[in-house]
Nucleic acid binder design. Structure first.
Lengths: 133, 133
DNA sequence: CCTTCATGTTTACAAACGTAATCGATCCGC
DNA sequence: GCGGATCGATTACGTTTGTAAACATGAAGG
């Protein structure tokens, strides 16, 4: 039977903006994090209540984006999708949606709209050199 | 007083995915388009009814993303935001959200995840050369 | 033991979204 | 002039999202 391409866990459900902030906290965190841990990181900056963080964690669990491991009477949460995979997916979505899938168009656009600093250009150049050889 | 940066019309309201499909149809269209025109282009491919297209057009008008010009008893619609501006905005959002705003990181990621073909690389290289000189 | 605190679960609720049907006015063909 | 086609406007309705309060339960401290 055909095997799906992604490198990790059953995906498919879109992660929203608010949920994404939680994911970043988890990706950032060294090892599994409790709801409180997540709250400590994102709560303040986004002005969320602990309750909100809990809701978002639940939804992410439903979406299979994170996994839980019981720790006493509470849960510890870990991302079950790789950040790189996620980032790649989102990038591709944008590429497909706005640039007909052509990465060069995206870069061209960034360049033209001056979203690229001199430093960016140098960095990309170096990157290319490395990739080309 | 500080003047906003964008080149065109009051923006601010997010354009959704469905709405974006309509925008593309309008950007594509030579000159103002009627609801029917839009429907003819996107209706089939997205499986939308004419009613749906009309709703989306209305919402885009509310969001000031498109403008209307009466033509007899109907309206002709034209984008009031430039595609390039929109694309730039969305690109920047992604960049900020996922790459800390560093374009080079995005390019690096695309490269590593093999989203860049040989052709892409060559194109980007050429682009850089042009920008550098 | 009983109170309090911490935790996940359930419920809430308004706004946004996707998708559309219905309504009221108008125009076109007969 | 009358009936159907056409158009924008209004209304609809289930789902998702953002944000959170209420609730149940178990742990911990006195």
């Amino acid at each position: 039977m055909p095997r799906k391409s992604g490198s990790q866990g059953e995906n498919s459900d879109r992660i929203t903006d608010a949920e994404h902030a939680v994911m970043e906290a988890l990706w950032d965190h060294a090892g599994p994090a409790s709801a409180q841990d997540v709250f400590d990181v994102v709560g303040a900056s986004r002005g969320w209540s602990l309750a909100t963080v809990k809701t978002l964690l639940s939804r992410l669990v439903q979406k299979h984006a994170i996994a839980t491991r019981p720790d006493g009477r509470r849960f510890l949460y870990t991302p079950s999708i790789d950040r790189d995979d996620y980032v790649g997916g989102e990038s591709r979505r944008l590429l497909d949606k706005l640039f007909g899938g052509r990465a060069a168009s995206l870069v061209a656009h960034l360049a033209e709209s001056e979203a690229l600093t001199e430093k960016d250009l140098t960095e990309i150049e170096a990157l290319l050199k490395e990739l080309k050889q």
